[in-house]
Amino acid sequence: MALITISGYPSSGKSTRAAQMHDFFSSDPSPQLKVKVISDDDLAIDRTSYDDSLQEKTARATLFTAITRHIARDTILIVDAMNYIKGFRYQLYCKAREAGVRVATVYVLATPDQCREWNGDRADGKRYKNETLDALIQRFEEPSSMVRWDAPLFTIPWDDPRPPLERISDAVTTGIVKPPNVGTQITPKAPTDALRTLEHTTNALVSALMAAQAASPLGGPIVLTLDALDPSSNTSANESSVLRVRLTLPHRALTLSELQRLKRQFVAARRKAVTLGSTEKGRVEWGEEGVGCAFADFLEEGLGVGR
Rank of each mutant, 00 (worst) to 15 (best):
N83F: 02
G87Y: 02
M146T: 08
I186G: 13
L133A: 09
N203Q: 11
N181V: 14
A212N: 03
T173Q: 07
T174A: 15
I76S: 07
N181H: 10
F140P: 02
A96G: 02
T184E: 15
P112K: 04
Q91V: 00
G100M: 00
F88P: 01
A123L: 13
D170A: 15
T201H: 04
K95V: 03
W149N: 06
S169T: 13
I156K: 13
G120T: 01
D80H: 00
A99I: 02
Y93Q: 00
T174C: 12
V103T: 09
D134V: 07
A110S: 10
A208H: 01
A194N: 03
T184K: 03
E166N: 13
W118M: 12
Q114S: 14
L205P: 03
E117K: 15
T75D: 01
K126F: 11
T105F: 01
V147F: 04
A151R: 09
R162T: 14
F154T: 12
M210V: 09
M82W: 04
A151I: 07
A194W: 00
W158T: 12
L77Y: 00
H200Q: 13
T184Y: 02
L209V: 05
T187E: 15
L195R: 15
L209R: 02
E199Y: 14
K126W: 12
R167G: 11
D124V: 11
R89S: 03
L205G: 00
A96P: 00
I137D: 03
K129A: 12
A110Y: 04
R97P: 01
V106M: 06
D121G: 06
I186V: 15
Q91H: 03
T75C: 05
E166M: 14
R167C: 12
D170S: 12
A211V: 09
I156W: 02
W149C: 07
Q138A: 08
V103G: 03
W118A: 08
K189P: 14
T105I: 05
N203T: 13
N83V: 05
L205W: 04
A171D: 06
D134Q: 08
I156G: 13
G87I: 00
T192F: 11
Y84T: 08
Y128C: 06
Q114Y: 12
Y84P: 05
F154P: 10
D193M: 08
V147G: 02
G183Y: 05
P157S: 12
P163T: 14
S144I: 05
I176P: 09
G175K: 04
M82T: 14
P179W: 05
S169M: 10
T192H: 12
A212G: 03
T192R: 13
P163C: 12
V172Q: 09
